[in-house]
C-alpha cells in the first residue's frame, strides 16, 4: 500500500514537520526515523547576519535526499489570500516544487484557518498550476468546496495547531471521510499521541501530518518511530476491516461441548 499525493506515490503515510526540535541533528535523526518522505518547511524574513536558517535548510535537504523524499513548503503566518499566494510563488521558486501546504489563518488565538480566504487562495493557486494541500477545519462543506475546486488532497485539523489534543471531533472527521471517498485526506495539526494518529487511520484517513508531537517529545527520535508504527497499525486495521461493535456480550470460546457441570442439573 502506498500513499499518493497528486499522482506521486509515497512509501510512508506520515508527513512530518521540521520545526521545534531541540537541535538540527535531532530533527534530522527524527525525520529519518519516522520514515516520512514528505517534510514541511517555510519561508521567513531573517536577519542578514544570521545564517542559522541556512543550516536548517541544509539539514532538511540532507533528510529529503536520504529518504528520496519531497519538500512541502507551507504558507504559515499568512492571514489573507493575497499573502498566501505571494508566499506560495516565492516557495515555488526557491524549492522548485508546485506542492504547497496552504495555510491562511483567521484567528490568532487558536490559529483556526480562515475558510473564505483559504478558498480564494486555493482557487488562484490551482489556476496557476500549484498542487494545493489546504490545511482547513473539520467542516464538511469547506472540505467539499476545496475538493470541488480541484484540491486532490484535503487536510482537516484534528485540533488547533500545537495543542496535542488529538481528535477534537471524531464525528466530523468520520463524516468527511464518508462523504469524500475519493479525496486524499490527511489529518493535519493537533495530534498528540500515536494512538490519535492510529485512530484517524482506522477511520480511513490516508495519512497524518504532524510536527509538535514528535519534536516536543522527550525523545523525538523514539517518538518518530512510535508514530510510524501507530500509523501503520491504523492503516492495516482499516484495510483489514474492523468488526462492528455489538450491544451484547458474545462468548469468544465455543459453547458447544461445555463441560458437564455447566449443564442444567450438573454439579
Amino acid at each position: 500500500m502506498s500513499l499518493t499525493i497528486y499522482d506521486q506515490p509515497l512509501n510512508s503515510r506520515l508527513l512530518i514537520g521540521s520545526a521545534l526540535y531541540p537541535s538540527p541533528e535531532v530533527m534530522k535523526q527524527a525525520i529519518l526515523a519516522s520514515g516520512a518522505q514528505v517534510v514541511t518547511l517555510s519561508l521567513k524574513r531573517q536577519n542578514p547576519a544570521a545564517l542559522a536558517g541556512e543550516t536548517i535548510w541544509r539539514y532538511i535537504q540532507e533528510c529529503v535526499a536520504q529518504s528520496k523524499g519531497f519538500l512541502l513548503p507551507n504558507t504559515a503566518g499568512c492571514k489573507n489570500a493575497k499573502e498566501a499566494v505571494t508566499l506560495a510563488k516565492m516557495s515555488r521558486e526557491i524549492f522548485a516544487t508546485d506542492w504547497i501546504k496552504l495555510e491562511v489563518i483567521g484567528d490568532d488565538y487558536n490559529l483556526q484557518p480562515d475558510p473564505f480566504e483559504l478558498l480564494n487562495a486555493a482557487e488562484t493557486l490551482l489556476k496557476d498550476g500549484f498542487k494545493v494541500l489546504p490545511y482547513c477545519t473539520d467542516d464538511l462543506v469547506l472540505c467539499q468546496r476545496l475538493y470541488d475546486l480541484g484540491c486532490q488532497v484535503i487536510m482537516p485539523w484534528a485540533s488547533p495547531i500545537g495543542t496535542g489534543k488529538g481528535l477534537m471531533n471524531p464525528y466530523n472527521l468520520e463524516t468527511i471521510r464518508l462523504r469524500l471517498p475519493d479525496a486524499t485526506l490527511i489529518l493535519d495539526a493537533g495530534i498528540g499521541k500515536p494512538s490519535d494518529a492510529c485512530l484517524a487511520m482506522e477511520m480511513g484517513y490516508d495519512a497524518i501530518l504532524l510536527n509538535s508531537a514528535v519534536a516536543l517529545a522527550d525523545n523525538p527520535v523514539q517518538m518518530a518511530r512510535a508514530f510510524a508504527q501507530g500509523i501503520e497499525a491504523g492503516s492495516q486495521a482499516y484495510v483489514a476491516g474492523i468488526m462492528q461493535p455489538r450491544q451484547t456480550a458474545h462468548p469468544s470460546t465455543p459453547t458447544l461441548d461445555t463441560p458437564f457441570w455447566h449443564q442444567p442439573g450438573g454439579q
Binding site: G17, T40, L41, L43, I56, W57, M90, I94
Partner: peptide, 10 residues
C-alpha cells in the same frame, strides 16, 4: 522589498 529565506516549518 521582502526577502525571505528557508526555515523550519510545520
Amino acid at each position: 522589498l521582502d526577502v525571505l529565506f528557508p526555515i523550519q516549518g510545520g
